[in-house]
């Protein structure tokens, strides 16, 4: 595209990767999911992935709407079942790049079991989890990631449950690449998403995002700008930090960075290796459904 300096207006670089007829999207003003999708589109633009071979799968929730907005093959599954669908897709088409883009409630509460087993098997997929500490779409109920003492619709006196430490949980289940960023770290998030898309195996990125309408408002934390300023002031980049130490408390310091990057054989590699060991020449290595 040649942009002449005279009156021709250049187009937004993310427009070619989004279904622009559906924009403006349904997310609230200042929602962090929009910024994360912006970064995702730019990360896709930077990689040399063939878009015909890329699939985005989402579950239900605010972040679950992402599958409807990205202009690649996408599927909007039932609640919590984004990973089972993506697992089937990754096994039937090993050459495809599968991205699961969903929220913390969808991936860790309703779909928790699916996620840990996909990580254990090291299915070749990239999971991007937008963590906004609440169930945004259904009105701000408590989730497994809501920090202690934070208020939600279902915990008006403050949450008393312990939370999941998402990077630690995913690492202990066997993910090959684990990172956490906030939506304030836009450039690092793009770089990390690019790296995760080029990683073979189960890669996981936690994106901490603000929910100005429910989480911020109920806890009297101000608007989206105040949330981003909190991320700016209280987050420290510690690449390679042990994931046991990166748990989050209510309005605590946030440790961000790339925590884990250790390749190991994927589900498909191990299947073919084992079967060849046992059956020898009789086994034809599996290369997807033809």
């Amino acid at each position: 595209m040649s942009d002449a300096p005279t009156n021709s207006t250049p187009t937004n670089p993310v427009e070619k990767l989004l279904r622009m007829e559906r924009i403006p999207h349904i997310w609230c003003p200042g929602c962090g999911v929009g910024t994360s999708v912006n970064c995702f589109a730019r990360a896709l633009d930077k990689t040399d992935i063939d878009y015909d071979n890329l699939h985005v799968v989402s579950g239900i929730g605010c972040t679950g709407r992402v599958a409807g907005y990205v202009n690649v093959d996408s599927f909007h599954t039932t609640h919590g079942r984004a990973i089972p669908f993506a697992t089937g897709l990754a096994i039937a088409r090993p050459e495809a790049k599968v991205v699961v883009y969903s929220g913390d409630g969808d991936l860790f509460a309703i779909g928790g079991n699916h996620l840990i087993h996909a990580a254990r098997r090291n299915i070749d997929m990239t999971v991007i989890c937008v963590n906004n500490f609440t169930y945004g779409m259904t009105g701000g109920q408590v989730t497994p990631t809501t920090p202690y003492s934070a208020k939600a619709t279902t915990t008006p006196y403050g949450n008393f449950e312990d939370t999941f430490n998402l990077p630690n949980l995913v690492e202990s289940c066997g993910a090959v690449y684990v990172a956490r960023w906030t939506v304030y770290h836009v450039r690092k998030l793009i770089k990390s998403m690019t790296k995760a898309l080029n990683t073979k195996g189960f890669s996981f990125i936690e994106v901490i995002a603000q929910c100005p309408t429910l989480y911020q408002r109920r806890n009297k934390l101000g608007d989206g700008v105040m949330a981003l300023q909190y991320y700016k002031e209280r987050s420290t980049v510690q690449n390679g930090a042990p994931t046991v130490d990166v748990g989050l408390d209510y309005q605590s310091d946030i440790i961000v960075g790339e925590f884990v990057d250790k390749p190991r054989p994927t589900f498909m590699d191990k299947y073919n290796t084992r079967m060849t060991e046992i059956l020898g020449n009789k086994f034809v290595p599996y290369e997807g459904v033809k």
């Binding site: 937004n12 670089p13 427009e15 924009i23 003003p29 910024t35 999708v37 836009v186």
Partner: peptide
Amino acid sequence: CGLFCPDF
């Protein structure tokens, strides 16, 4: 501005 914009 473009990177932060949630609404493209």
